[in-house]
């Protein structure tokens, strides 16, 4: 078994274990219905996390994700009331996400600013941008959105896939292709693994960094679109702290926060684990949301410590 799949294996094991625990506690838990709901509820966070996966693989971090989701939603909602067709605004917002990410990536690389700080500024700018656009929750009423929200593909066993879930799965496939079948994908892994070596091996580090954050940006924007369709509204306080959930999903998915190691597919399961935990706790009824945070934290701790000790076996230490 290839070592690089161990963390993913751990993730999938945890996911299945949680699912089975749920099944043993509640009737009807082990069903495509529950699975479909988890997918629908967490589609936007998983999409955002996929973008974050690229950023983290490259050795960076993106905190602007949550604000981007809210900003996209708010702009879509306001343009909707102005009579624009959602497809036009969607295309516009995706382009905006790409450009904004690229801008962040450029500043990070050119000015040698820590990604943490630059994307923190991005978080402020976009959240502030939301408030500048509107202070209220604005509904999106266009029939197209209603249609998208109600479209469902039935699954065997009574479950169904929502539009958001399908978009999520499609974007996951695209991300896997980008990560594993393009030069850009390889370059991301390389600069995350060892930036200096990558440079000496001929990887264009600046271009790769800019494109990485641009990818993070477009995925965050897509997450915003899915979230807006899911809630049929735009709200400036939406998705507060979503960037943390996205990072947690990436880490639980087996990607090293130090960069260079991880699989995009893992992020799907990482996000599903987070969704499963909240579903389990909501099913329980008497437990409150405290446990969602605490159990996420504990899982995060376990995975981070596990990664800490796995690093050695990946031979990341320098030859001396």
């Amino acid at each position: 078994m290839n070592q690089k799949y161990w963390p993913l294996l751990a993730t999938i094991t945890v996911f299945i274990a949680l699912f089975v625990i749920g099944g043993s506690m509640y009737n009807n838990f082990l069903s495509t219905l529950v699975l479909g709901h988890i997918l629908a509820d967490n589609a936007f966070i998983i999409i955002a996390a996929i973008g974050t996966t690229f950023v983290i693989l490259s050795g960076g971090i993106d905190l602007s994700v949550g604000s981007m989701i809210a900003f996209v939603g708010v702009v879509m909602a306001v343009l909707d009331s102005a009579g624009w067709h959602p497809l036009v605004t969607i295309a516009m917002m995706l382009a905006f996400g790409f450009l904004f990410g690229a801008f962040q990536g450029f500043i990070i690389d050119y000015c040698k600013i820590q990604p943490f700080i630059m994307t923190l500024a991005g978080l402020f700018i976009l959240r502030g941008g939301c408030f500048m656009v509107t202070l209220d929750s604005v509904p999106i009423k266009h029939p197209f959105v209603k249609m998208m929200a109600s479209t469902r593909v039935p699954l065997p066993g009574g479950g169904f896939l929502t539009t958001g879930a399908m978009v999520m799965l499609a974007s996951l496939v695209i991300a896997i292709i980008i990560a594993h079948y393009t030069r850009f994908g390889s370059n991301v892994y390389a600069i995350g693994g060892d930036r200096e070596s990558a440079r000496l091996m001929g990887v264009p580090t600046r271009k790769t960094t800019v494109l990485t954050y641009a990818t993070g940006g477009i995925y965050a924007a897509l997450a915003g679109v899915v979230y807006a369709l899911y809630t049929s509204s735009g709200y400036p306080l939406a998705a507060t702290g979503a960037e943390l959930n996205a990072i947690a999903a990436v880490v639980l998915g087996g990607t090293l926060l130090t960069g260079g190691v991880g699989l995009v597919a893992g992020t799907l399961f990482g996000g599903m684990i987070l969704g499963l935990i909240s579903t389990l706790i909501i099913f329980h009824g008497s437990l409150n949301s405290a446990w969602i945070m605490i159990s996420s934290g504990i899982l995060l701790f376990v995975f981070i410590v596990m990664h800490r000790f796995l690093i050695g076996s990946f031979g990341r230490q320098k030859l001396s």
């Binding site: 030069r183 990558a198 001929g202 264009p204």
Partner: peptide, 13 residues
């Protein structure tokens, strides 16, 4: 890049 496979290292850039 130690964490990447041999073939990926070869194909890089």
């Amino acid at each position: 890049i130690p964490a990447m496979s041999v073939v990926k290292n070869m194909a890089l850039a």
